[in-house]
C-alpha cells in the first residue's frame, strides 16, 4: 500500500519561485521558494539583516524582485503573476485582498484622522459609501480588537503603542483580506501588551481562516502564531518546516544556534 497524498486537492494561495532581491551588488534575499495554502500561517525568522524584510517587501509587492516569480490565486480561482499584473490591479489587491501590518503602527495608520476614519477609509477605498454602515463596521472592528467604542472619534496619536497596533490590525482586516503580511507585529511593545496582541492575532487568524506571513525575530512569537517556519540567514533560507519541528529538532547549525540562544525564564 502506498501513501496517498493528503489535502492535495486544494491549490495553494501563493506560489513563490526563486525570488531574489538585490540592491546593486548587495543581496537582500536570494532564491527563495515556497508555497502558502489558505488558512496557513508562515513565520519567517532570522536576525537583523537576514533578508526577512526584503523578502516581505517583495512578497507584498512593495518592491519589485530582481529575479523570480510570485503567483497569487485571485478570488475567481485564476493564478496571477503578481508582477505581470498592472500597477492598478496590484494596488487594488493590496487595498482589498491583502493586508499589511507594519512594525511601527505609524507607518500603517493615518495619525491625523480619527480611529473610526482609519478603519472606514479601507472600506471606502473599495467602494463603501453609506456613512452609517461604515461607522457600524468600524465600531464592530474596534470591539474585535478590544478598543473602547467611545474612542472611535479620537485620533490614534492619543493611543498607546499597543492600541495603535490593534487599530492597525482592525484597519487591515475590515475588508476581509485573504492574505495578511505582518512585519514584527509585536516589536517595540511591552511584554504584557505583546501577550494580549498575540492572543488577539491568534484568535483572529483562526476565526477568519486567514493566511498570513509573519516576519519576526522572536521565536516565541513564531511558535505561538506560525504553522510553518522558514529560517533565514544572509539572505537565504537555511531551514524550513513544521514550526515545532524546526524549533525542537533544528537541523541547521544556524537554527541550532538561534534556538539555543534563547534565555529560559
Amino acid at each position: 500500500m502506498s501513501a496517498l497524498p493528503l489535502l492535495d486537492d486544494e491549490p495553494p494561495l501563493l506560489v513563490v519561485d526563486g525570488l531574489t532581491v538585490a540592491y546593486g551588488t548587495r543581496v537582500g534575499c536570494r532564491d527563495v521558494s515556497f508555497e502558502l495554502w489558505p488558512g496557513e500561517v508562515l513565520g519567517i525568522v532570522g536576525e537583523s539583516g537576514s533578508g526577512k524584510t526584503s523578502l516581505l517587501n517583495a512578497l507584498s509587492a512593495k518592491i519589485e524582485p530582481t529575479a523570480g516569480r510570485i503567483h497569487y490565486r485571485l478570488r475567481d480561482g485564476t493564478m496571477a503573476d503578481l508582477f505581470g499584473l498592472s500597477e492598478a490591479a496590484r494596488r487594488q489587491l493590496l487595498r482589498t485582498d491583502w493586508g499589511v501590518v507594519h512594525q511601527n503602527p505609524r507607518d500603517g495608520l493615518r495619525l491625523t484622522v480619527s480611529a473610526g476614519a482609519n478603519v472606514g477609509e479601507r472600506l471606502m477605498a473599495i467602494g463603501a459609501r453609506h456613512y452609517g454602515e461604515i461607522r457600524g463596521a468600524a465600531l464592530d472592528w474596534l470591539g474585535k480588537v478590544e478598543i473602547d467604542r467611545d474612542r472611535i472619534d479620537d485620533r490614534p496619536s492619543s493611543f498607546s503603542g499597543g492600541m495603535q497596533q490593534r487599530l492597525q490590525i482592525a484597519r487591515n482586516l475590515v475588508t476581509n483580506p485573504r492574505l495578511v503580511f505582518m512585519d514584527e507585529p509585536t516589536g517595540g511593545l511591552d511584554v504584557s501588551v505583546q501577550a494580549r496582541l498575540l492572543d488577539l492575532i491568534r484568535g483572529l487568524v483562526a476565526d477568519l481562516g486567514l493566511s498570513a506571513i509573519i516576519v519576526t525575530h522572536d521565536l516565541a512569537v513564531a511558535r505561538l502564531l506560525a504553522h510553518r517556519l522558514m529560517v533565514m540567514r544572509g539572505g537565504e533560507v537555511v531551514e524550513s518546516g513544521l514550526t515545532d519541528q524546526v524549533l525542537d529538532d533544528p537541523q541547521h547549525p544556524y537554527t541550532q544556534l538561534l534556538v539555543s540562544s534563547i534565555l529560559q525564564v
Binding site: A3, L6, H227
Partner: peptide, 19 residues
C-alpha cells in the same frame, strides 16, 4: 489515517498538521 495511510518520515508539514 482514515482509509489511507501515510509515512510520517516523508510527510510534509501540512500533512502532519492534518494527522
Amino acid at each position: 489515517h482514515g482509509a489511507t495511510r501515510i509515512d510520517l518520515a516523508q510527510a510534509r508539514p501540512r500533512q502532519i498538521i492534518e494527522l
